[in-house]
């Protein structure tokens, strides 16, 4: 990341001189233009996050401690993290694969061009249609008295519940998350698919490659950075989601955001600083996911500038 103009880079001269003495005030006035934005980010993005991180390592009296982190390994906290990670991973994977298939169908003309505009607009809506209303949409469809069960019952078939499915459990929530993961995947990956040049496919074909060889050796490696980035985003998106889970499963399902929500509301863990540790854990998970993504991306992008 470039925070400072590269020394001796003639392409980007710093206006007003080249000596260090004249540069310092110049740079300060440059950064001053960003002051409102930086102040805003500091107060409402950086400091609150920092507060969480430091709080996770403090005892109630303010002294440094690792007790909060240690206590994360107790009660239902580890399983909450595990379930959260599983739901986020599975919903990102399902939504990602399905979204990729739809994007490929749209990008390579398997379905008529006219559907493309409609599909992207709809994706824009659906990707932003999350939270409480989404939960109700799934309750109305897959819930005990929902559309599917009504139809099953009127045909004298076993209901979803009798088949062992619960909209209020792991798979119910995962299915609801897929509802916004799938269109988000389409929005993110369709431009990347459009970036695959027709000549690459043709060059591969004329050199004797089969369609599968083209995808394995050319198209997928080129798409890998975009795929990884989108997957990391989908994962974080599901991991931090609260409202859908609250409205759908209530306290039924033990996942981190709901646990943290309850803790903030009423200190259910009996230790306010354990809440910090919980939130810190969430930051760590998304940070690990994103670091993994950046690392994989750098590896897969050797061929880019």
């Amino acid at each position: 990341m470039i925070l400072w103009p590269a020394p001796g880079n003639p392409g980007r001269p710093i206006p007003g001189g080249t000596s260090l003495r004249t540069n310092v005030p110049k740079l300060l006035s440059l950064w001053a233009g960003l002051l409102p934005f930086l102040l805003f980010c500091l107060l409402f993005l950086i400091l609150p996050t920092f507060k969480i991180v430091t709080g996770a390592f403090q005892a109630p009296d303010g002294t440094f401690t690792l007790d909060n982190i240690r206590m994360m390994n107790s009660g239902n906290i580890p399983s909450a993290f595990w379930v959260s990670i599983k739901i986020s991973f599975v919903s990102a994977l399902l939504g990602g694969v399905a979204g990729f298939a739809v994007s490929a169908a749209l990008a390579f003309g398997a379905v008529p061009k006219a559907l493309r505009g409609a599909a992207t607009t709809f994706s824009g809506v659906a990707a932003n249609f999350a939270g409480v209303p989404l939960a109700f949409a799934f309750i109305a469809t897959l819930g005990p008295v929902g559309l599917v069960n009504v139809m099953l019952r009127s045909n004298n078939m076993a209901t979803l519940q009798q088949m062992g499915f619960s909209i209020y459990g792991f798979w119910g929530l995962t299915m609801a998350y897929v509802f916004f993961q799938l269109p988000l995947m389409i929005l993110m990956i369709l431009p990347a698919l459009d970036g695959l040049k027709r000549e690459w496919r043709e060059a591969a074909a004329i050199l004797g490659a089969s369609g599968a060889q083209y995808w394995r050796m050319i198209a997928l490696p080129i798409l890998t950075p975009a795929l990884l980035g989108t997957f990391a985003l989908l994962f974080a998106n599901a991991f931090g989601a609260v409202a859908t889970a609250m409205a759908l499963t209530g306290a039924n399902l033990n996942i981190v955001p709901i646990l943290l929500f309850a803790q903030i509301r009423g200190d259910v863990l009996g230790n306010p600083h354990l809440g910090y540790a919980l939130a810190f854990g969430m930051i760590v998970v998304t940070a690990v996911a994103n670091t993994l993504y950046i690392w994989l991306r750098v590896r897969s992008e050797r061929w880019l500038k």
Partner: peptide, 13 residues
């Protein structure tokens, strides 16, 4: 990347 619930927790504190 930073979940909203974490941010608001920070705000409250």
């Amino acid at each position: 990347v930073i979940p909203a619930i974490v941010l608001v927790f920070g705000y409250i504190r």
